[in-house]
Computed example of a mutant assay.
Amino acid sequence: MNSLENFSKWLQEEGRSSGTIKTYLQIESFQKWWVAEKIADRFEPEEVTVLDLQDYKQFLVQHARNKRGGRLAAATVNKLLQVIRTYFKFLIETGVISYNPALKIKNQKIQKSHNTVRWLEDKEKIRLLRKINNPEGMKNTWHYKRNKAMVYTFLMGGLRVSELAGLIIPDLGLAKRRLTVHNGKGGKERDIPINDDLFQALSEWMEIRKESPDEIVFLSQKKGKFTLQGIEHVISKLGEQLGLEDFTPHVLRHTFCHDLIIKGYALQVVAELAGHEDLNTTRIYTMPGERETKKAVNSLSMGDSF
């Protein structure tokens, strides 16, 4: 069994999800880079130094490219650095190496910008709710009930696309009004209370989808499991009908988090509900949106003073 297979097995034993394991196996890119840089025959983990890792970080920042040919975002660089930290932790715990060179590697600084996160403004949210709660003109009741329940699960439950796609019927505790996410980021499980609006939307959907033997909560048009792209397409199409730009499932999730912050709930509460591992992620939602800042500046107009 090679080192990557051992690493994969170790990650499984750590309770990491299949998606997380796939991400961490990107360590192979670092191994190939190291072999090329050292003009070595093979990767030797015990010979990796702090300087090697610092050089690799600079390579990621200055030379590595994403699929579109652009430079890697700081957040992407930091994810790859976390892959390295986890890999060397594995090597330490399994006795492959005795010194961990990754301990001194710091993350790339991220320039804070609230414009990178979009949530629905109040008027947009009202338009969405009016549309999704009005079945007039809807030719397919099955689709209408499903799409409405999906929107409410994002908007009132704050789920990620992958989490919604992975929901199965036992996850819906409608009697206890609690929704359980088993496939959260980092393999973590969390419970989310189901409010009245979400309860009604889910109940209506479950009533009409009950004929399907599949355990998946949200079924595709062919009555099978939804792909992530399929879910994103449904939400994007709804956004087009509403005339909303950049309308995605993540925008609905951002709206869930932002609305909770605006209502005065503590960062820790919002982080728990959203499944954030770092409070700095949740803190983004304390920043004003672009329209809020524009409204604030426009309010300073002197036009009515003359």
Rank of each mutant, 00 (worst) to 15 (best):
N2H: 06
L4N: 04
I21L: 04
K22S: 15
Y24I: 02
Y24D: 02
L25F: 01
L25K: 03
I27A: 03
E28P: 00
W34Q: 06
W34C: 05
W34L: 11
V35S: 13
A40W: 07
D41C: 01
E44K: 00
E46C: 01
E47A: 15
V50H: 10
D55A: 13
K57C: 09
Q58V: 05
Q62C: 04
Q62F: 08
H63E: 14
N66D: 15
R68H: 14
N78V: 05
K79C: 06
K79I: 10
L80S: 03
I84M: 10
F88W: 00
S98I: 09
N100T: 04
K106E: 15
K109W: 00
K109T: 07
Q111F: 10
H114Q: 10
T116S: 09
W119P: 10
E121V: 02
E121G: 09
K125W: 08
I126M: 08
L128Y: 02
N134S: 12
N134F: 03
M138C: 14
K139F: 00
K145I: 05
K148L: 14
M150N: 07
V151Q: 08
V151M: 12
G157A: 14
G157R: 03
G166E: 05
I168K: 13
P170H: 03
D171V: 03
L172C: 15
R177Y: 08
L179I: 10
G184F: 02
G187W: 02
K188S: 06
R190S: 10
D191A: 09
D196Y: 07
S203Y: 12
W205A: 10
E207F: 12
I208W: 09
P213E: 09
P213V: 08
E215D: 15
V217E: 03
K225Y: 05
L228C: 11
Q229Y: 01
G230S: 13
L238S: 01
G239Y: 00
G239S: 05
E240I: 05
L242I: 08
E245R: 02
V251T: 07
H254P: 05
F256K: 02
D259M: 02
L260C: 09
I262T: 13
I262S: 11
I262C: 09
K263I: 00
A271M: 07
A271Q: 11
L279P: 09
N280R: 13
T281S: 15
P288F: 05
P288T: 02
E290F: 02
E292R: 12
K295A: 15
N298Y: 13
D304G: 12
